[in-house]
Design a protein around this nucleic acid. Structure first.
Length: 503
RNA sequence: CGGGAUGUGGCUCAGUCUGGUAGAGCACAGCGUUCGGGACGCUGGGGUCGGAAGUUCGAAUCUUCUCAUCCCGACCA
């Protein structure tokens, strides 16, 4: 029978954070592990969420003049060699295609045949192959800027994987732009970070810290990498998007040249920027609770689920008509320019039905039974509140207020995340205190965000990383210039940087 | 690539030490009673025990080899 106060997800966050995470993914029916090492199957509920992310982000990109295109999955091995640091950064995680045919091996199996003259790699990112096209498309300053984006899958052969957070194959978008001037390219780098910030905060309801990566954390081959970092509930940091100013490094490697207004030949200035299905992992870890997934309404695959309640001897038809009627009315309403999506679940599986939708994270659950039909009411529960807190509402009032309720949920989970981040962000000036905070922290309370002074040397950065597995997530744009001493070596420092354990 | 562990219905696992021909819970299907905080009863379907070879009258169980996965390192946006 009913087990009161039992969490729907086991273990809870405090008991075992990473097992809780895997369980939320499974219980929400978003994704599952596949037989292929390190790869996952994204199920309809998870993919619908991704489609909403793609749809909304794509609009924001296009508003800045970016156009979509598509480039090959395979990249000739020699292309990767065009930018020295780039090779260094990605060589170790590339899947390589060496053959193009299978033959019978005589033992009932198949063996590769038809060796390729030049091996192909499966793209880990596409700077080099897109650079090749850009080089051919650019001959005059009038051809610039080139503002391209592609939605694609990439492969990075990671040693250890976790669903959504790090998988060997993942879905993402990668933007690539080429400009005539350095200033314009830098401006674009920042503009795209603004887009990411807007999307992640307003749609995924995840507050982020914006800043610049240190040299050692930079994208391989970039002159500058800027990023947004979010705090998960276990206090670790997750990068939710990055934007790179590539200088002329890739332009030189790929030969992206043009004649400027003075008639001189010049190399273009390029940028690239990306965000992936990893954002979904972040979204899960920021909002979900011990009852499962909590979806931000603005990207939820369904906004409302209606559960008809049947009583013995009652006419099911009357209830189903009422339920269908409510769905029809709701689906005519717009929530941020998107029609409301309403599910009806009339499965005959008892109370487990309601919990299914709690675990799937649907923002609003509605129960309609004989009593509601009599009273012209609905029984409403919000996913951002405890599962027990249901309230009766007048049916018309509910229809009237639903979009406000959804906005309210969106704001509520965002504010909750803002507060969580504030509560676990500290300024620390004492080395002992810094080490004490990070030493022996794990699981649900895995450190904190610490704003501390750093002298700028890679040595200090490296030492802290080795001692504590803590890295400089970024040098926040808004960290003020102030006198201080490096948390590691005591040398003079002019500003604080953001330290955290990272995913 | 080093260290450790595990492979038994869809899932989680028992059975392995001490060989005797396959089990449980959950899930699934049918029927009935149910349904506003996680339902119950009855019936039923589904496994050549990761693979190969060996020992034996007989192998999930013992031996050897092999494959795969997971964990800890190393690595890593």
């Amino acid at each position: 029978m009913a087990k009161k106060n039992k969490a729907a997800i086991s273990p809870t966050r405090e008991q075992d954070y990473s097992a809780w995470y895997q369980e939320v993914v499974k219980a929400s029916d978003m994704a599952e592990n596949s037989p292929v090492r390190g790869c996952m199957v994204i199920k309809p509920w998870g993919y619908a969420l991704w489609e909403n992310i793609v749809y909304n982000m794509d609009i924001l990109f296009k508003e800045t003049g970016v156009k979509n295109a598509y480039f090959p999955l395979f990249i000739p091995l020699s292309y990767l060699e065009k930018e020295a640091e780039h090779v260094e950064g990605f060589a170790k995680e590339c899947a390589v295609v060496t053959h193009h045919r299978l033959e019978k091996d005589g033992k009932g199996g198949l063996k590769p045949a038809g060796k390729l003259a030049e091996p192909l790699i499966v793209r880990p990112t596409s700077e080099t192959i897109i650079g090749e096209s850009m080089a051919r498309w650019t001959s005059s300053y009038r051809d610039l800027p080139l503002l391209l984006n592609q939605w694609a899958n990439v492969v990075r052969w990671e040693m250890r994987t976790r669903m959504f957070l790090r998988t060997s194959e993942f879905l993402w978008q990668e933007g690539h732009t080429a400009h005539a001037t350095e200033a314009e390219a830098k401006e674009r780098t920042m503009l795209m970070l603004d887009v990411y910030t807007k999307f992640v905060e307003e749609y995924l309801a995840m507050p982020v810290i914006r800043g610049r990566k240190t040299v050692s954390e930079r994208f391989p081959g970039a002159d500058d990498t800027i990023c947004i970092e979010a705090m998960m509930q276990d206090k670790r940091a997750l990068q939710a998007g990055t934007s790179h100013f590539l200088g002329q490094n890739f332009a030189r490697g790929s030969g992206i040249k043009f004649q400027n207004e003075e008639g001189e030949e010049a190399y273009a200035w390029t940028t690239s920027w990306g965000s992936s299905t990893r954002m979904i992992g972040g979204m899960i870890m920021v909002h979900s609770d011990d009852d499962g997934l909590v979806l931000p309404p603005r990207v939820a695959p369904a906004h409302v689920v209606i559960l008809p309640i049947f009583k013995k001897g009652e006419d099911r038809r009357i209830i189903m008509e009422s339920v269908q009627g409510l769905k029809d009315v709701l689906e005519e309403k717009l929530f941020h320019e998107r029609k409301l999506n309403v599910e009806i679940d009339d499965r005959d599986i008892g109370g487990a039905r309601g919990w299914d939708w709690v675990k799937k994270g649907v923002p609003v659950r509605i129960e309609i039974g004989p009593r509601d039909i009599e009273k012209n009411s609905v029984f409403m529960a919000r996913r951002d509140e405890p599962a027990s807190q249901k309230q009766s509402m007048n049916r018309e009032a509910f229809i009237d207020q639903i979009t406000d309720i959804l906005d309210n949920i969106q704001d509520n989970i965002f504010n909750r995340a803002v507060n969580h981040q504030k509560e676990h962000t500290f300024e620390i000036d004492d080395k002992k205190e810094f080490y004490k905070l990070y030493k022996n922290t794990s699981g649900y309370n895995n450190g904190a965000f610490v704003m501390a002074h750093w002298c700028g040397s890679e040595k200090c950065e490296e030492k802290i990383k080795n001692d504590l597995s803590v890295t400089i997530r970024c040098i926040p744009f808004d960290s003020p210039i102030e006198e201080g001493k490096c948390i590691s070596c005591d040398s003079a420092s002019s500003r604080r940087v953001l330290f955290a354990k990272a995913y």
